[in-house]
Nucleic acid binder design. Sequence first.
DNA 1: TTGCATTTGTGCAATTCAGCACAACACGCA
DNA 2: TGCGTGTTGTGCTGAATTGCACAAATGCAA
Lengths: 208, 208
Amino acid sequence: MAFNSNIPDIVIGRLPIYLRALNRLAQEGHEVTSSHELGKRLGISSAQIRKDLSHFGGFGKQGTGYQISYLEEKLRQVLQVNREWEVALVGVGDLGTAIAHYRGFADRGFHICCLFDNDPQKVGKKVGEGLVIQSIDDMPNVIKKNNIQIAMIAVNAEHAQEVADQLIAAGVRAILNYAPINLNVPEGVHVQYIDPVLHLQRMTFYLK
Amino acid sequence: MAFNSNIPDIVIGRLPIYLRALNRLAQEGHEVTSSHELGKRLGISSAQIRKDLSHFGGFGKQGTGYQISYLEEKLRQVLQVNREWEVALVGVGDLGTAIAHYRGFADRGFHICCLFDNDPQKVGKKVGEGLVIQSIDDMPNVIKKNNIQIAMIAVNAEHAQEVADQLIAAGVRAILNYAPINLNVPEGVHVQYIDPVLHLQRMTFYLK
DNA sequence: TTGCATTTGTGCAATTCAGCACAACACGCA
DNA sequence: TGCGTGTTGTGCTGAATTGCACAAATGCAA
Ligand SMILES: NC(=O)c1ccc[n+]([C@@H]2O[C@H](COP(=O)([O-])OP(=O)(O)OC[C@H]3O[C@@H](n4cnc5c(N)ncnc54)[C@H](O)[C@@H]3O)[C@@H](O)[C@H]2O)c1
Ligand SMILES: NC(=O)c1ccc[n+]([C@@H]2O[C@H](COP(=O)([O-])OP(=O)(O)OC[C@H]3O[C@@H](n4cnc5c(N)ncnc54)[C@H](O)[C@@H]3O)[C@@H](O)[C@H]2O)c1
């Protein structure tokens, strides 16, 4: 299945939201749903959902809607999350430790497989179950040997770009950056950002 | 200064990004910048930045660019972050505790002023400096008395909607939701979501 | 079988969004 | 002063995105 780049990124961005909503519907005992039901839950128009899905094939049945388990499977295929991904985490401070302990990543197919820090005090320490903090100096080799393509950055803003450069040089092609700074990366490398303050600042605009 | 709703939300969403980049430029010792420099850092076209800013007035000077401190001030005014906001946090489990300890919110003007949980074991416990976990039953009164307009939700997905409803009934008008579920809220209430797995799933689409 | 109530997938139109390109302005320097 | 370089703010154009509306398909009930 080779969906080239003729599919808008904004559509790709909505697929995980659909998938998450389908998970929940299934948990609640539903077996089928419709674009209307989904749209109502998500605050998205039904036409938008149908059009988004139609980029990848006809997953629904007219008059009936979508069988949830089937649609979930298809979306997982499209997003390539019907497998386990190994993820590296750089920066094991307060945030990094919290991330390492959080089960929500592994539960949804992202296995944090190695931790790196540059603080000699921390290297060698155990975190959670079976994870040991490794030196940032060993990072390139570990990344390459295990062919890791995804990393999370949880270091200080001042070091985030430097860490990103090292990760990319080692072969990482997708980065989730928690540091409050924009990264410059070469073509072909994907970056996503998490900064809760940005979300708050966006909402205060509308308050009173 | 009354910017009505004729300004696209997508523009509002970029302003905090600009503001964050300006902070950093200032930290690095710059005093002026240009739409080109900003755009290069952020991967956004310079025309876009100029047009976004021009919605709120002419903050730059032709031939020179933007004076950083002045533009920061103006953006803070527009976003209404030139003041301190009080924020309530509901759900003081692993994530909630991490949030309560994180200084990044207060540093940028969002003061977490009260914590709520429904676990009797947790109510009364101290978290961080000066914060005590209160019962969810007291939440409406505390929210109303302190006129709190912003809340973060860090409870289990199963209880997030219920908590949101209670918050909104108490007067909250902006919610940052960490639970992996979409919330249904009435007109006029703003919700933003944080789910790192969504970001990862968006990137795996493009891997190999 | 027929009719009715649903719901999908999609062509097309409308709207929103992004970027080009340039006049107007600013500054430094000769 | 006059000239060259640099940058903003914006009208206009094209691209991207969304939403409408309907034919085609499905299932059910009479
Ligand atoms: N997005 C969020 O939700 C969120 C929440 C909390 C913190 N943050 C951000 O995450 C970052 C980390 O926050 P924190 O509170 O954990 O800080 P911290 O200081 O506790 O942890 C940073 C860790 O990174 C390590 N580090 C620094 N430079 C490094 C390098 N070059 N290579 C490897 N390791 C390096 C340090 O040794 C330390 O262990 C900060 O940028 C902070 O602003 C984001
Ligand atoms: N977005 C993220 O980055 C991120 C990270 C970690 C966890 N999470 C999510 O955040 C949520 C909390 O995660 P956690 O690991 O802290 O879980 P947790 O079980 O440790 O904490 C949940 C807390 O919420 C409290 N709670 C439950 N129902 C409540 C109610 N009705 N009113 C008040 N308090 C209530 C519980 O007593 C508990 O203290 C989960 O939905 C999880 O998926 C999100």
